[in-house]
Amino acid sequence: MKLYIAVGTAVLLVMAIFIIVFVAYYQQKQIRQQLILKEWQEKYRKGLLAATLQAQEHERRRIAQDLHDEIGTMLSVTKLSLNQLGRTVEHNDPGSTVLVQKTRSLLDETIANVRRISRDLVPTTLERFGLVSALEELAEKASNGEVHVELSCSDKMPTLLPQLDLTLFRIAQELINNAIKHANAENIIIDLHCQPTGILLSVIDDGRGFDLDEILKDKKRGLGLRNIESRLNVIDGHVTFDVEEGRGSRIHIQVKNLKPEVEVEVEAV
């Protein structure tokens, strides 16, 4: 009987130790697999996001190209025809000259608008002269009698990857647009600095601010802010919102000036 007890106890002990070792080993293995899976999912998500942004840029280019090459050309040809018509009308029906001139000025305005939209869709300055020039142009365009946009920038800005340039430009564009449209800001400062850790872009305004939590909670609003976060996610960047309702907002974007894992190819038009 005692022998049976000894054998039984030994068997139970071996089983207990086996169970403990198995649980520890299996759990650790599962955790490792889970981590790998999460990494893959994160990579896939980033890839998907990068592809979406790339497709968005391609689409913008296509529309800009169509506007410039097709509608722009057609409008120019129409203007030429109108000029010919104007000359004919001047001789036969001098009373219609005013109408022709009015149509010509409308046509000029339309051509200018098409060019502006086409240029806004594709930041050609960014591709030709880099981020600083593009931001200067953006500040200049956004400034008018009521709004003053100023760019403050490091003397020595390194050449950034095209993807990084485009991301920072689009973010600055979105933030300035928000400051003018939603916060009714009068003074906006774009601060671009190169730090040892990376590039810091800040957009500071004196508008009425906003409640970040409330905006992010509402799925219908805050699309632009979510878009900024998505863009930064692709290049491992960070955004800090120093905002409060009733006072101006300070939004800081920090990105590493390194070759990112996921690259978005930027094609020239």
Partner: peptide, 16 residues
């Protein structure tokens, strides 16, 4: 589990 496995039979057959 180790404590219980090691002493289970000792108490189940306590008379022995």
């Amino acid at each position: 589990i180790v404590h219980a496995a090691g002493t289970l039979f000792v108490f189940l057959f306590v008379k022995v």
